[in-house]
Design a protein around this nucleic acid. Structure first.
Lengths: 124, 124, 124, 124
DNA sequence: GTGGTCTAGACCACA
DNA sequence: GTGGTCTAGACCACG
């Protein structure tokens, strides 16, 4: 099941992408398996099929899923690796925010502690 | 004075906010000093006055500047502290992104290195 | 017998057509020989009979095979010639793509090299 | 003016992409210039704004144009180079078709002649 | 049934 | 005004 918050400022289609990537990483959607159909997700999430389609199109462009019209959408064999590659681009975002924080007088230690806390927390 | 990139993906009004905050932190706009007028910025930056106005309104909301009807806007006495408090909220964003990166299989070291690189680089 | 990749972006029914044409050209399906039945292909390839049917219908339309009610489909005597004629239409597609490549600044030599490489490679 | 054939099998949004790329290559839309707005194109071409949007989104993804919400879409400074890079992927398509033609018994010379004819024709 | 394209019309943030 | 997102509903090719 995908968790979508329609009131979030993050676009719904991006939330769907993130949730599906998460499920693939967690093994809920294993490689080669079939994803829920556009219409099925549309009904269960109460979201317009076009919005789901937009998410699937982007996932396809990233090489994470593979659509087969008339058959369904399948998780790519190398989906996890593709997700990792796309995630690396977020490091650039980290860099940008860090620059802003530095300028505002936030110490390096505060940021490093925030990052480390995430890893420590989930290592339990 | 203010460096604005109209083609940036960051909205112009946010760029103006960031630039003014930067100038305050650098002491270019000292506490109690008067900021450039709406019209002045509008002309020198070739930017719609409504956009400047939006930036000033947001800076006022954050307690960083104070409007003085008829005589422009002034830098708040505690502007630097207000900027720092607002920046702290961005740490939450760092946390969210870090969680996504962790799930995608990015190591803690990669993120810490990215953050450290920013501080090392600007300490030169 | 037939190599079908269900995850290919090329529709399955087109893959079937191409594979059958290939087998005819290679002499695996000689003129006047009988083709595998709909049910047989459907079972061995795990493909919907409607899809096989669509391929056979198209091959019939092209004059490459001939249905014989009650006793399967037969390879036309002039099948190879019909295949060649249909292939010639693809030259038009080559022409269209070439025009686009030329406009984009791709040199003639790059395209000629690509084409020649295919023939050299398969002449081994 | 963009030439769009709504009856073509090629999707309208792809035709729009191709036409805009063509105009950029021809210098009709110079680097840094503003493209027609979504609504303007929608009216002049009698095509739904969402379809135009889809084209602009893809052009943005390819790094050919740069949207600036509230201001318009601008041609990237390095648009021509980005178009060339994307065009190179079409060489792979040429390769695939050539393989099919070879299998069908089409000689290398026929294909080379087709390609050369395009360049000779437009060199006049 | 599936994914892919297109239209129509609405709402939002931004300039 | 601009681009971006979303909904609603239709049609197509494919399996």
């Amino acid at each position: 099941m995908l968790m979508i918050d329609k009131l979030s400022s993050k676009p719904v289609y991006e939330q769907i992408i993130d949730e599906i990537e998460k499920n693939i990483l967690l093994g809920i959607y294993p490689p080669e398996s079939v994803l829920p159909s556009l219409r099925e997700l549309s009904v269960t999430l109460s979201i317009n099929p076009n919005t789901i389609q937009k998410s699937y199109t982007e996932l396809t462009r990233r090489g994470i899923i593979k659509p087969s019209p008339g058959s369904g959408c399948y998780v790519s064999p190398n989906a996890k690796e593709m997700i990792r590659q796309n995630a690396l681009q977020k490091l650039e975002l980290i860099r940008t925010i860090t620059e802003e924080l530095q300028l505002a007088g936030i110490s390096k230690e505060e940021i490093l502690a925030t990052v480390s806390a995430v890893y420590v927390h989930n290592d339990k």
